[in-house]
């Protein structure tokens, strides 16, 4: 194949979908962008980005291990990430030491996960590019089955978050009052860790384990800068994630740079623009008014 940009914009777009692998890449990217942006919005609000990053990194040995024993990498992504969530939930619930204790547990899980990842990669005698695809994302080779698995995971996660949305928001901004009002704060914390694990595992399959923040953190953080209203801010995050993913996929189709790089730098660009917009001096026409 030899795709190249033409002056015909319409042809440029239709050309993207000439190959089935590209169609699947767009399907997967869309599912993942929506899921990651919504879960990531809560993750940023709850200040649990460290946990989110760990789930993504831990899904790397999961995928490497799955390839080693000859099953689909998707199962490995999900299995390891969810296991890590259960370990972190159990450890930080029993110790009750607050954030410091929790972050120590998370760090331990992350280090162990990465070590196993390297072991599995070297055991399976795969070339370096295999590991690279897991760590930095790859466009090719997303199968129909994988798309369906991503869709199922995404739908389950979004249904759960839709159901617990208000209590989760309440427990995230004001846990003491929420608990007094009968919101099961501890249960919600565990449920959210599991949901986050699934979202991180999904995002790793598009951006790669290392660059998962491109979809999990950057779009929600950008949306938070622009909009205060919770519902609207969530929708903005989804819009940014979709835009960045679709553009990133197109860009890496037309040049040879890796997909993770494109998505991340686009998301970073959006974040920079949002930061700049917030800092506009008062006298400029687009500056925000205080109320």
């Amino acid at each position: 194949m030899d795709p190249h940009l033409t002056w015909n914009l319409y042809r440029d777009v239709t050309q993207l979908f000439d190959y089935p692998f590209m169609v699947n890449a767009y399907r997967a990217g869309t599912i993942v962008a929506v899921t990651a942006a919504i879960i990531g919005w809560f993750m940023v609000l709850r200040r649990q980005t460290f946990a989110g990053h760990t789930f993504a990194l831990v899904s790397f040995p999961g995928a490497a291990g799955a390839i080693l024993i000859g099953v689909s990498a998707t199962y490995g992504f999900f299995a390891f990430s969810i296991c890590a969530a259960l370990v972190i939930a159990a450890a930080s619930r029993s110790s009750r030491g607050g954030y410091i204790e929790e972050s120590a547990v998370i760090g331990t899980v992350q280090a162990l996960g990465l070590a196993f990842g390297f072991l599995f990669v070297s055991l399976s005698h795969r070339n370096v590019s295999g590991a690279q695809a897991l760590l930095f994302g790859s466009l090719v080779g997303i199968t129909n089955d994988q798309v369906i698995q991503l869709l199922a995971g995404g739908l389950i996660v979004l249904a759960i978050v839709g159901f617990i949305w208000r209590p989760l928001l309440f427990a995230s901004v004001d846990p003491d009052v929420a608990a007094a009002r009968g919101v099961p704060v501890q249960v919600l914390a565990v449920v959210f860790l599991l949901v986050l694990a699934v979202a991180a595992a999904e995002a790793s399959q598009v951006t790669g384990s290392l660059l998962v923040f491109a979809l999990l953190v950057l779009p929600p953080a950008t949306a938070e800068l622009l909009v205060e209203r919770p519902g609207l801010s969530l929708l903005t995050a989804v819009a940014i994630a979709l835009l960045v993913t679709w553009l990133g996929l197109a860009m890496s189709y037309y040049n040879d740079y890796p997909i993770g790089f494109h998505i991340t730098s686009l998301a970073f660009g959006a974040y920079l623009l949002a930061q700049g917009w917030r800092r506009l001096p008062r006298w400029t026409p687009f500056a925000r008014t205080s109320v």
Binding site: G162, F163, I164, W165, R166, P167, L169, F170, D174, A178, R181, G182, V183, G231
Partner: peptide, 8 residues
């Protein structure tokens, strides 16, 4: 309404 389940 913070204790209510479901999508607002």
């Amino acid at each position: 309404d913070g204790h209510r389940w479901g999508i607002p």
